[in-house]
């Protein structure tokens, strides 16, 4: 399997935060949703991938290029958009488009004009008058029209209204019709991630919590309502969170399978087995991580 991004044992120490042993593999042509709460290390990881931050230890390869050593070659084919990124307020979008065209030989004028219309942006308007949604759309236009092989998007939908979010996600899905294009998409909005990703990586407190393809990931999680037989508590390692309400215990597990269900049934009366959406899984992970820290 060809990898667009390959990180091994990445670590970066800051006075109040540590990114530890990050292993991340993003297959070419896939959409990796990079999920984590605020301050989990998503942006730091992405900045390392872009060569903007040098890790203390570990190796990074982006599109086959070692980072940050070969960042110039890699960044020729990477489009990067971050929520906190800003264009020059005193200049128009047209100025930025012309500038990008001068830098990237693959810049596609027709596609850029089509995106201008689709995103309802005015080429000659100065960007200081842009709303947050317009700004994100403008940056996405600048990233997409250069026809990158890899898109790294750091919280691009944060703070957008539902219609702007829908427009941007729709555009991303259109872009992904090209199966050779890879997207790494970070967000703490699990709905967005669930909608467009085919792989999911959870990062919590500077560490990768889990990483796999979406279907396998969602299939491995269940919420089980069970009344345990007395003195017959199950193996704790299979439980991510548990809530006891009278004789009923509601547990979440990330190692669900037919065999594990049979094992649960031997330990008590299983009342219900429910699939979980990404948001519920996300909350369970965060709760589990907080419990472990405390």
């Amino acid at each position: 399997m060809e990898l667009a991004i390959e990180c091994q044992k990445l670590s970066k120490h800051y006075p109040h935060f540590d990114l530890s042993n990050i292993d991340l593999s993003v297959p070419t042509g896939s959409v990796m949703g990079f999920v984590g709460p605020n301050g989990a290390g998503k942006s730091t990881t992405m900045r390392i991938l872009m060569g903007l931050v040098t890790p203390d230890t570990g190796t990074v390869k982006v599109l086959g290029c070692d980072m940050p050593g070969q960042q110039v070659r890699a960044k020729q084919e990477v489009g990067f958009v971050a929520e906190d990124m800003r264009l020059y307020a005193s200049q128009s979008l047209g100025f930025h488009m012309d500038f990008m065209k001068s830098v990237f030989p693959a810049w596609d004028d027709k596609f850029a004009d089509a995106l201008l219309k689709r995103f309802d942006l005015v080429r000659d308007q100065k960007t200081k008058g842009y709303s947050h949604g317009q700004r994100i759309k403008a940056m996405l236009l600048l990233a997409l029209a250069r026809k990158p092989r890899l898109l790294i998007l750091d919280e691009p939908t944060t703070g957008l209204d539902p219609s702007a979010r829908h427009e941007i996600l729709q555009q991303l899905m259109d872009v992904l019709e090209d199966e050779t294009r890879t997207v790494l998409f970070s967000s703490h909005n699990t709905l967005d991630i669930e909608q467009i990703s085919d792989h999911i990586t959870f990062i919590l407190n500077g560490r990768i919590h889990s990483s796999s393809d979406k279907e396998t990931f969602l299939d491995s999680w269940r919420r089980i309502r069970i009344s345990f037989n007395d003195h017959d508590r199950p193996d704790d390692s299979a439980i991510v969170t548990s809530q006891i309400s009278g004789s009923l215990t509601v547990i979440t597990t990330n190692t669900f399978s037919d065999q594990s269900l049979n094992a649960w049934k031997l330990q008590g009366c299983v009342h219900a087995v429910e699939r979980m959406n990404l948001e519920e899984i996300f909350l369970a992970c965060v709760e589990n991580e907080r419990e472990q820290r405390s």
């Binding site: 060569g51 903007l52 960042q71 020729q76 990477v78 990067f80 800003r86 264009l87 020059y88």
Partner: peptide
């Protein structure tokens, strides 16, 4: 301070 730097550093350049 106006966060134009991440935009510029996303271009094919080194620090």
């Amino acid at each position: 301070t106006e966060m134009n730097l991440p935009f510029i550093m996303s271009l094919p350049i080194t620090s």
